[in-house]
């Protein structure tokens, strides 16, 4: 299954890259969702898979009696999912507000910070004290 997941990770990542390269901010955000999923799956697969044995210690024991799933990647992914949600929510709101303010979701049309007709900065006049 790990091998299958490796292929799936690549597939999701590829789809995410394609979506993120789109001019539409909406598609870009879709790509962001997919790339988070791809990353989580990659971490999960890297920790190796154990079927049907959650990382729990039965009552009365001090350590798991049998082989259980790797707990470490699970802890990483759990927080990654929540953080990813925070990031996504923020990005969505950003896109939403950008659409409000700029009237477009075409990233190539969003040139507020980097206008196309950029004025070259005036070179600092030389304030040389002396010519030797």
């Amino acid at each position: 299954m790990e091998v299958l997941l490796a292929v799936l990770v690549g597939w999701l990542f590829g789809a995410a890259v394609y979506l993120m390269l789109s001019r539409s901010l909406v598609r870009y955000l879709f790509g962001l969702v997919l790339i988070s999923n791809a990353a989580n799956l990659a971490i999960f697969a890297s920790g190796r898979l154990t079927r049907g044995a959650p990382a729990l210690v039965p009552d009365g024991l001090t350590a798991p009696a049998e082989v259980v799933a790797n707990a470490l990647p699970q802890a990483l992914i759990l927080t990654a999912i929540v953080i990813g949600f925070g990031l996504l929510a923020f990005a969505f709101v950003l896109a939403y507000r950008a659409h409000d303010e700029l009237g477009t979701v075409d990233t190539d049309a969003m040139r507020v910070a980097e206008p196309i007709a950029e004025e070259k900065p005036v070179p600092a006049a030389s304030g040389r004290e002396t010519a030797v």
């Binding site: 490796a6 990770v9 690549g10 190796r48 798991p64 707990a71 470490l72």
Partner: peptide, 27 residues
């Protein structure tokens, strides 16, 4: 990009798992 990611994950899976931390947490 997708292909590279698959290859990378496969390369990771090919390396022996270091379960030092996992064992520590379990114990």
């Amino acid at each position: 990009s997708g292909g590279v990611m698959t290859l990378m994950t496969l390369a990771v899976l090919d390396t022996p798992l270091n379960d030092h931390l996992t064992k520590y947490f379990e114990a």
